[in-house]
Amino acid sequence: MTAPRAVALALAISILGSLALVAIYVFGGSIQLQGIGLALALGGLGTAIVIWAVGLIEAPIEVEERHSFAAQEREASIAEGAADGEQISRRRFLSRLLAGAGAILTAALVLPAFSLGPQPGTDLFRTAWRRGMRLVDAGNQPLRPDDIVLDSVTTVFPEGFVGRPDTQTLLIKVRPSDLALPSGRDAWAPEGCIAYSKVCTHAGCPVGLYRAREHLLLCPCHQSTFDVLRGATPIFGPAARPLPQLPMEVDPEGYLVALGDFPEPIGPGFWDMTHIPADGG
């Protein structure tokens, strides 16, 4: 076999090895296959370069004088490799093949970076809130509307998920007559108790401040301000969306329970947030 053919063959093996490596990563495969794939990809590339060096590069023997460091004059040794005109097109083909093999191998080697994290899936659309879950405070105590002081604010979670960041919810009690919620939500605020996601719809900070006299929730990070009486509509700052409201009712034992998850994704926005997955959980 001629040297150019051997180089092309070795590069082809390398490309196949890299493609196999991609396939093994995407579809899953054993450690043995991963090792063999990588060895073929690298081995093919290395073999091709070695054959290239030995069989395709005509390098004349050169002599470079060795100088004692005492004398610093240095003569440049000049020698030029002769390029054969006939072989240029074949070399161009091999060079391109080499570049291609290198590029595919690089892509295959970058793939494991995808092991760093899961796919977002529905994580950004859902929280753990489900129909019938009781609202509990940070001490895991379920709450009755009567337990809640007027104009107070409590951070609540679904029972069994205390401290779970995306479920954090603010429970506020106001005079029912003051409320001016968007239509269809009147039943979500039994006895003046309303619950909004605590995660700011701007940059995700916990909306930690409540100005009870004005019924305003304030995010300390970027000063987004939400009107509690009117469905937590943003009235100042960079937040553009209201805090999602948790639908809830009072269960037969008198405790506050959720009617389901938040109707919209909570927290900071993302590009496909309006494509809410079909099953509402």
Binding site: A113, F114, L116, G117, P118, Q119, P120, D123, L124, P165, D166, H202, A203, G204, G267, P268, G269, F270, W271, D272
Partner: peptide, 23 residues
Amino acid sequence: YSVVIAIPFIGPYLAFLVFGGEF
């Protein structure tokens, strides 16, 4: 994290890779 997920099309994927999941 919130700024990263705000990038159109790739934001959520990028954020999940960098942070290893939802913050």
